[in-house]
């Protein structure tokens, strides 16, 4: 099942915060960076897709304005 946006964002936050608070080993560093990159790419792709869908709908919303 695809991870939800909020879950993914929370996981990404946790990884980023761990760099400030935990003592991340170099081995962990790679794993964490790899996961964070994966999450960012996934969120980015989803955002781009959503933007495209919004772009498609925007003119339809704009058409609701009466042309008087």
């Amino acid at each position: 099942m695809t991870i939800s946006w909020n879950d993914a964002a929370r996981e990404l936050d946790a990884i980023v915060n761990s760099f400030d608070t935990d003592d991340v080993s170099v081995d962990e560093l790679f794993m964490k960076l790899s996961r964070a990159t994966e999450l960012i790419e996934m969120l980015d792709a989803r955002l781009i897709a959503t933007k495209a869908q919004v772009e498609e709908l925007s003119p339809r919303l704009a058409r609701l304005t009466p042309d008087e």
Binding site: V16, F19, T37, I40, L47, T50
Partner: peptide, 24 residues
């Protein structure tokens, strides 16, 4: 919402890059 999430991702990407660079 789109702007906010775009900013969120950009910020996280930046933080991540700096954190990793700092750590390395």
């Amino acid at each position: 919402l789109l702007d906010q999430e775009t900013a969120f991702l950009a910020e996280r990407r930046r933080t991540m890059t700096f954190a990793v660079r700092d750590r390395l």
